[in-house]
Simulated scan of single mutants.
Amino acid sequence: MAGLSFSNVSKLFAGTPALDDISADIAKGEFVALLGPSGCGKTTLLRLTAGFEVPDRGSITLNGQQLAGPGQFVPPEARNIGIVFQSYALWPHMTVAGNVAYPLEVRRLPAPERKRRVAEALAVTGLTAFADRAPAQLSGGQRQRVALARCLVADPRAVLLDEPLANLDLSLRAAMQEAFSAFHRRTGATMLYVTHDQTEALALADRVAVMQGGRIRQFATPEALYDRPQDCFVAGFVGDGAVVAVTAAGSPQGGRLMVEALGQRIMAQTATAQPTHVCIRPEQLRIDPDGSLAARVSACTYQGGRFRLVLETEGETLIAHAPHRARPGDALRLSLGSPWAFRDPATTALLPELHHA
């Protein structure tokens, strides 16, 4: 049974769709990331879930209870949903323990119960030693953990996180990613995490909903998004690599199909008999003196233990990894593995369907 469900949810602002017919089911205890560029609708979906906005159409349910829908709207304070904001939103005049205890004070829980639950929340987030400090005495990562503890202490039915790592530096982001993962493992909470950073989404989430223009383009596991994107947007937005137009050059056999691309025939993995594009990831390219594909280096970047090469070939730009530095202008030859070929809906919208996958 789904913990959090969206059914045909739409939202307009000044007549412009921010969300357009969103339907998705999130299992109870699942960690889901909403990933996409600015303006894609991910924060609007989070605000609808929290109750800060009302959908114009469709319904939202949590653990079987309808939160919003035709003739029904549960206010934010009655939803028991925890929210962790990008800005922390901590009370500066309260201690860490005071900030964490505040939601319980509002509910007028007895003092012994408040003390017990605050101690548990601080322990889970690794903040026990900081209970008596003020927020100003903490690092950015510690403040974010206070916000997480304050969310946890109320025993929420779901946890919403709105780009919580955006204000942190790179090293703190890595540490907080581990903290969020540990938090999810220990609590089993249903979590909805908004981000425009694909590294965060792929590292943290059980599944990722890639959004564009108010729609979910693909909702799948991180490995499925990376290995088997469904359209050109997802293939280009998730992961590194290139999206190249192809035509079929045979019939699929066992999930593989010969295609024509980059001036040659390539054996690709596929789920369709008529692909329009192929997604070529860096690990599918190998620098090989006997390779069939000629390329020229246009850029080289060191990435710690390897170099990222930007290569030009047959009018296309490819990305490859190499153990040694190459200089712009160097000529290389490449061998290509079995990339993923797919049929892009936008490309084929005006074309007749010749075959069915």
Score class of each variant (00 low, 15 high):
residue 162 D to T: 06
residue 134 A to C: 12
residue 169 D to K: 13
residue 177 Q to D: 05
residue 174 A to V: 15
residue 174 A to P: 04
residue 141 G to A: 10
residue 143 R to M: 11
residue 173 R to I: 12
residue 121 A to P: 02
residue 172 L to Y: 07
residue 158 A to E: 04
residue 129 A to T: 15
residue 143 R to H: 04
residue 163 E to N: 10
residue 142 Q to K: 08
residue 169 D to P: 05
residue 176 M to R: 01
residue 119 A to K: 05
residue 146 V to E: 03
residue 135 P to T: 13
residue 124 V to S: 00
residue 156 P to H: 05
residue 183 F to V: 09
residue 148 L to I: 05
residue 153 V to E: 00
residue 115 K to D: 13
residue 177 Q to I: 10
residue 162 D to M: 04
residue 147 A to D: 02
residue 140 G to T: 11
residue 131 A to T: 07
residue 122 L to W: 01
residue 141 G to H: 06
residue 157 R to Q: 14
residue 128 T to F: 00
residue 179 A to N: 12
residue 152 L to H: 05
residue 127 L to S: 05
residue 129 A to S: 14
residue 177 Q to W: 09
residue 163 E to Q: 06
residue 181 S to K: 10
residue 170 L to K: 13
residue 125 T to L: 02
residue 114 R to P: 03
residue 142 Q to V: 09
residue 166 A to P: 02
residue 145 R to C: 13
residue 140 G to D: 10
residue 183 F to C: 07
residue 181 S to Q: 09
residue 146 V to R: 01
residue 180 F to G: 01
residue 170 L to Y: 10
residue 173 R to F: 01
residue 181 S to N: 08
residue 126 G to H: 08
residue 129 A to H: 11
residue 158 A to K: 00
residue 111 A to Y: 09
residue 183 F to S: 03
residue 155 D to N: 09
residue 177 Q to N: 08
residue 168 L to G: 07
residue 131 A to S: 14
residue 135 P to A: 11
residue 167 N to P: 06
residue 121 A to S: 08
residue 133 R to S: 12
residue 149 A to R: 01
residue 163 E to W: 04
residue 143 R to C: 06
residue 128 T to P: 02
residue 165 L to R: 07
residue 140 G to C: 08
residue 126 G to N: 02
residue 133 R to I: 14
residue 134 A to H: 07
residue 133 R to H: 15
residue 125 T to Q: 02
